[in-house]
Amino acid sequence: MATEVIPTDASKLKSVAQIAEGTAYKPLPQKAEDGYVTAHAIQTIAADPQTLYTLWRNVEAFPRWQEYVVSVKELGAGKSHWVMGNPEDKDGTRVEFDSQIERDTPGERIGWKSVTKGVEQEGVVTFVPAENGRGTIVTLIQKQRVPGGAVGNAVAAVAKRGPKQIVIEDLRHFKEMVEAGEIPSVAGQPHGPRGVTGSVKEWMLGETNPTPPGSSEQR
């Protein structure tokens, strides 16, 4: 990727997330151009930055809370191998790629970038203590190639959600896992006959979304 739109400096994010006194609001990167979508999500999570950093840094545990991650293998030196797809659909599409953690500041920030040819995504997550004592302000920014097809955007290739919504749901699930110990789900619950429109709207019903289990050992 030619231009770097993702702020790599946690202090820049801090000024937006916490509205430092006497500064003007500057929007976080959120745009779609040149075939890339940059999206962000922000949540205040009731835990300290170090705990959240440690959970996020444990890449092999991502299938516990992120949708459409089948497995992750830590390869050492910040490199990991990712298999994306619907974990509940054994014969479903799988997209594999390697990811490299590039900026890693314990307790503060993790930045990563895909290093497999054809898959283009990068991201950064920052952990800033909330000044009001409500925990940690977690900001996730991701830039990815769209339309993905089987290459380019590995998540969009297998998920039903749009690229912006994926970022929002990923961070939401992280928060749910940390705070509630599980990710709310109605997947597979009973219901009466859905009729014709019901099946069309299954994305909205949430009953067919593969919800990750969300148990966190640290809790």
Partner: peptide, 27 residues
């Protein structure tokens, strides 16, 4: 109302505003 018991809202006794119980929060 379904509440997690652990989020900011539950801890503030605003149980029907729980952050973590709605799978369709995006809607």
């Amino acid at each position: 109302t379904i509440a997690c018991g652990n989020c900011f809202f539950c801890k503030d006794n605003l149980w029907s505003l729980c952050d973590n119980s709605n799978p369709n929060a995006h809607v």
